[in-house]
Amino acid sequence: MDRRREDDPKLPASLETGLGELFRPRAGERTELDQRVARAAREHFDARRRVLPGPGNPPFARTWALRAAAVLVLALGGWVLVRSISNGLRTQDVARADRDGNGRVDVLDAFQLAREVERGVAEARWDVDGNGRVDREDAHAIAVLAVRIGS
């Protein structure tokens, strides 16, 4: 008995191909994905080239350009985070999502609302995401708030 074959079993090629075909991108999908990723990569590397000096420049300048870019990205990221809205919810919605009034938003608030939604007894005031109806999405929104870092 071939020990390696025993340890790492193979499938007949036709079966392996058949399995692969179930999940392989179709020609049109492959082309579209190629185009989308190529566009993103081009924008990404173009942006880098605008920030960074050319390859002939000394590593010193390159390093500091990288650092400056990192600082800019971090500063911008921080600003975006501070301004960001989690799942469409504003910071003041956090208080609104504290269903059990224990002073914090946690998974129990989400769970309580989800149970009420299932039983059809959820009150309109728990429309946390403000879309005009109270449904499982509101429980989802509360859960997202509950795990938010820094909340």
Binding site: G20, F23, R24, P25, E29, R30, L33, D34, V37
Partner: peptide
């Protein structure tokens, strides 16, 4: 690409 798409699918 192909396996990433397969996993995503």
């Amino acid at each position: 690409r192909d396996w990433v798409f397969a996993l995503a699918l």
